[in-house]
Amino acid sequence: MSIKVLTLVGSLRNGSINRQLAETAATVAPEGTDVRIYDGLENIPFYNEDLDVEGSVPAAAAALREAAQEADAVLLVSPEYNGTTPAVLNNAIDWLSRPFGAGALNGMPAAVIGTSPSPYGAQWAHDDARKALGIAQAKVLEDAKLSIGARFEVFATTHPKDHAESAAEIAGVVSALAGAVELVNA
């Protein structure tokens, strides 16, 4: 059985270090685990219940929901914007949480990783993302989290997949997600 991890990246910037962390997750995933980075979050309209009507959900939001329904786990890779989670990730969680109690994240193992230039590594954003995922009824792995701080100078010249410590830390989170999926399916 292949485990599918849907990965949502909160930075839309070309060359984003958080995007590189997601790429690293795909590289270091354990055998049998497929980490898929979702592209297109910037195309999803802000959640509006008036738009969330069966048969007329915007195509971009429907595609995100479909990707989540095909996944076994979700990995959020988040920078920190003004002390919290980027709007693009909050919006994705909003779309994936509906209808409440039966949203695509319901019961799905979830983890949050990311980086920022500060020594705290986007911890506030990650705490907010874990809270939102929990309210959306995902099974948030509280012990599988990673806030990488103060490594931007290293990442300026080295992709995180080539930085042994970062790659190992990310591999640990992805392995924990895969393990959680196996427990759910046991």
Rank of each mutant, 00 (worst) to 15 (best):
G172T: 10
A144H: 03
A150N: 09
E165Q: 15
A59H: 04
A110W: 11
A67D: 14
T85A: 09
T115G: 01
R130Y: 05
T84S: 15
A144L: 06
S97M: 12
W95N: 14
S147E: 10
I135C: 00
L141E: 00
A60T: 01
M108R: 04
E169V: 08
A110I: 04
E80A: 06
V57F: 01
P58T: 02
L133K: 06
G103E: 07
D94K: 10
A61L: 12
R98N: 11
L141D: 10
N82H: 13
D128M: 05
I148F: 01
L75T: 09
A87G: 15
E165Y: 01
P119W: 00
V88I: 14
S118W: 11
V154E: 13
V140N: 02
G107T: 02
V173D: 02
N106V: 04
A122R: 01
A164L: 02
Y120M: 14
T115E: 11
A144D: 00
H159D: 08
G134R: 10
H163D: 15
R151W: 00
V173Y: 06
P160T: 13
R130S: 09
L133R: 10
D143R: 03
G55K: 11
L146F: 00
K139E: 08
F155C: 01
A110D: 13
A156K: 06
I93A: 04
E80G: 06
A68K: 12
T157H: 11
A67W: 11
V112Q: 00
N90W: 06
K161Y: 08
V77F: 00
S175D: 05
A132Q: 13
